Amino acid sequence: MDFASLMTKEISKAKPSDTKDKKETGSNNKYQRRADVEAARIAAYNAEQEKLQREREEKAALKRKHEEDELERRREREEKKRKLAEESRKKREAEEEAAERQRRKRLGLPELPPRASEEGTPVPEEEDIDDEELIKKLRELNEPATLFAETHKARLKRYRKLVKRSLTPQLSNGPIPTTLELVPEKDMKIPAKIPKDIDPESRKFLFRQLASYFTMLLEEWAIALAKRDTSVKESFSGRQAFNAMVQSRDNMRPLFKKFETGDIDHTVLEAIVEIVHCAQERRYVDANDGYLRLSIGKAAWPIGVTMVGIHERSAREKLHESDNKAHIMSDEVTRKYLQSIKRCLSFAQVRWPPDDLLQLMG
């Protein structure tokens, strides 16, 4: 074996180990696992987010500090302004008091009494109530005699507030809230006509009766509409009937206001009393006649030429009679509540049908 073959053999033995080392070293430098790459990316992202979060927190803390400083400066300015205003007011009052004292001294008037302190001003003797009597009055009002840590002055203030509240008129819970005290159904019977010499108390009771009757009608109307089936309620006619009830209720509010104040025309009141009286007796045709006389009236309607010649025409004075005035033409409010009364009559004859079928309105 010569030298060349020997060297070739030795080189061939060394080649596999070099290739293996190259593969091992190359795998470490050239190739990486996907998990390692993802972990490195997540770590870099978390580090960046932590850095951004720290920056945001620092900015928020700095902004909050600026706001607190600004609020403190504003509070100090307001406090300073308040103190200056208080000092100016006291100084001005002192100067005015000194000037008034000098004026009184110069004119020989009695001295000015000392100014009472604003805090802890005692209750005047004529307005104060003995503690035992005050507790008794509170118990008569079904109120606790004393509250926790309540002083006599606070108890007296609470009593006056309760008395003031009791004197305030309370509203009813009906469809139309009113300050009139509603009467029970057995006391709603209204006379056919208003007495000529009616006293104020009887007139007020008549207003209470009328308000109670219309309140009962509206409540029964709402109950009747609520008892309908859902299909009927959601239909066009059902919604129209409900809207008519709501509109009538809203339009009758001015009438209730007139009942409360008593400021209602006597002729209108007489007609309403007649309508309600006939409706209570289930004579709906007569009630409808009263409604027509109230709304349209009996005044003659001028047709054609009325002032021809120099001679007085017969029955011409009927054109200008005030007793036959059509009240529905007075104003829009009157027209609306008179129309609502007619709708109430239409419901009443359905809710309380008459014994005589001839008394049914058309």
Rank of each mutant, 00 (worst) to 15 (best):
R54G: 02
R54V: 03
E55M: 14
A60D: 08
K63H: 09
K65D: 06
H66M: 10
H66R: 12
H66S: 05
E67P: 02
E67Q: 10
E68T: 06
E72P: 06
E72A: 15
R74H: 13
R75K: 10
R75H: 12
R77E: 03
K81A: 09
K83G: 03
L84A: 12
A85D: 07
A85I: 05
E86M: 11
E86V: 13
E87M: 14
S88W: 09
S88I: 15
S88C: 14
R92K: 14
R92Y: 13
R92T: 08
E93M: 10
E95V: 13
E95G: 04
E97Y: 01
E97M: 04
A99W: 00
A99V: 09
E100G: 06
E100A: 11
R106C: 06
R106T: 08
G108Q: 02
L109K: 14
L109P: 13
E111F: 05
P114A: 00
R115Q: 02
A116G: 03
E119T: 09
G120R: 09
G120K: 07
V123K: 07
E125P: 05
E126V: 10
D128N: 12
I129C: 11
E132G: 05
E132N: 09
L134E: 02
R139W: 01
L141H: 12
T146F: 15
L147P: 10
H152G: 08
L156H: 13
K157G: 11
Y159I: 02
R160P: 02
K161T: 05
K161G: 04
K161V: 03
L162K: 01
V163M: 01
V163G: 01
K164A: 05
K164N: 04
R165T: 05
S166I: 08
L167W: 10
L167Y: 13
T168C: 07
P169Q: 06
Q170Y: 05
S172H: 00
S172P: 03
S172L: 04
N173S: 07
T178F: 04
L180G: 03
